[in-house]
Computed example of a mutant assay.
Amino acid sequence: MDDISQHLISLLGSGEACGPATQEQIDVAQCKLGLIFPPSYRLFLQTFGAVFGHGFEIAGLTPGKDEPTIWCDMLSSTLMYRRHDALPKDSIYISTDGMDLSYFLKCSKVGPAQEGEVIEWGPDHDGGSIYAESFTSFLERHLDR
């Protein structure tokens, strides 16, 4: 297990995961969105799928069963935000603060090795602001509230 995997487990291990996303689910989501997820987020998807914990949730790829789940599906949430033109360009929905602010992870259209910034976006976003330099730094900051 590499350092990033261990770090993700140490940060998110207390939450309830829906189970790993398959490579096919990840490929389909990237294709539907026309984006390439950052390596750390792909690893999160492959390890957890999505996570719901005490005071936090991290959207991911959920099993897609017909019954309601506790996990937030990143693909359907991102597509909903796109329909309303309510997210930063080339980004995906990953979380909320439970009030007015949502968090979006910048993705690449060309390179699978690029880590993206996390943008904090709210009602008066004025283009949003950089909340964290990467998905893992977002988790460190967001979960330390």
Rank of each mutant, 00 (worst) to 15 (best):
G53R: 09
S76W: 09
E120H: 04
G122T: 04
D100K: 12
I70T: 14
E67D: 13
T69H: 06
L45E: 01
I94M: 04
S40F: 06
P38L: 07
A21D: 03
S40I: 02
I36S: 08
T22K: 08
L33M: 05
G122H: 13
V51A: 02
D66F: 10
G53F: 05
K106V: 11
I36G: 03
R42L: 06
P39S: 06
I94C: 05
M80L: 14
M74S: 08
P123T: 14
L79M: 14
S76H: 10
K106S: 12
F56E: 01
G55E: 13
G19C: 05
G116R: 08
L33K: 06
I92R: 03
G64T: 09
H54C: 07
A21C: 04
F37M: 01
P112Y: 11
E120D: 06
K109N: 10
P123W: 13
V51C: 03
F48P: 00
I26E: 10
E67N: 13
Y93I: 00
G64W: 08
P88G: 06
G64N: 09
D85C: 09
T96Q: 10
V28W: 11
R83I: 07
D85I: 07
D97L: 02
E117P: 02
I26P: 05
D66E: 15
E24P: 05
F56R: 05
F104H: 15
P20F: 09
S91I: 02
K32D: 13
C31K: 15
D73C: 10
K32C: 09
D85T: 12
G60I: 01
K65L: 12
G111E: 14
G55W: 11
L79G: 04
F48T: 00
E57Q: 14
